[in-house]
């Protein structure tokens, strides 16, 4: 007997006494919880996102679509970034005035090569206001998972209000489980020393989020 059969057999014997739910799963579990916490205007939801991002030590910037290239260029310059990783589908104009040398996101790059790049600029798939979370789904304007992991400085652009949802349930509805997802809430941190949160372990130690509004982003 294979272990597969052995385990499934044990499960079935173990459940001999158990009542099986009939009917569709949607009816098997009562979901009395909220889809979002409190009703807010769109503007207030964006405001809450900014607050919660900042609360977990992401650096939040706000600008219009027209200002975005200058803002990104400014952030990279202030960081002293000489090189910046660029996902294949990042809009060209976002980096139009940035001085840092562009490093394309390529499958051939080794982790060691990525480790020598100063910064990375990406878009996101969705942002969650209640938790201060940005979610990347590997889309063309976000690139492979590793490019937002190895460099120490991540600039993430959120198109507001379009990409902002209130809550975790709303975010899951918008996301495709078949894509590899990375949920990011602040820079990397640890609670492992006396259960105190300390920022800055293996992921980017600086996370800057640009909330860009209006126009053709």
């Amino acid at each position: 007997m294979s272990s597969r059969e052995r385990i499934l057999g044990r499960v079935r014997r173990a459940l001999a006494d158990a009542e099986r739910d009939e009917g569709p799963y949607e009816r098997a579990v009562e979901r009395g919880y909220l889809r979002e916490h409190g009703g807010r205007s769109t503007a207030a939801t964006v405001e809450l996102l900014a607050e919660n991002l900042a609360d977990y030590r992401a650096v939040v910037h706000r600008c219009t679509a027209g200002e975005l290239p200058a803002v990104i260029a400014g952030l990279l310059a202030a960081r002293g970034a000489r090189t910046v990783l660029v996902p294949p589908g990042l809009p060209d104009r976002w980096l139009a005035v940035a001085e840092a040398e562009r490093v394309p996101d390529r499958s051939e790059s080794t982790p060691h090569e990525l480790d020598r790049v100063d910064s990375v600029v990406t878009a996101c798939a969705v942002a969650v206001a209640e938790t201060g979370t940005i979610v990347l789904d590997g889309g063309p304007d976000q690139g492979r998972r590793r490019i937002t992991l190895v460099p120490d400085h991540h600039v993430c652009v959120v198109r507001v209000p379009g990409q902002v949802v209130s809550s975790v349930p709303q975010a899951l509805e918008r996301l495709d489980p078949l894509r590899p997802l990375t949920w990011i809430s602040g820079p990397s941190a640890t609670s492992d020393i006396e259960l105190d949160r300390v920022e800055g372990v293996h992921g980017p130690r600086t996370l800057e989020v640009v909330l860009v509004s209006g126009g053709d982003q």
Binding site: Y56, E130, T131, V168, T182, S185, S188, A189
Partner: peptide, 9 residues
């Protein structure tokens, strides 16, 4: 925490 720093799926 409202949300942990990283969740991967």
């Amino acid at each position: 925490e409202r949300m942990n720093p990283y969740t991967s799926t």
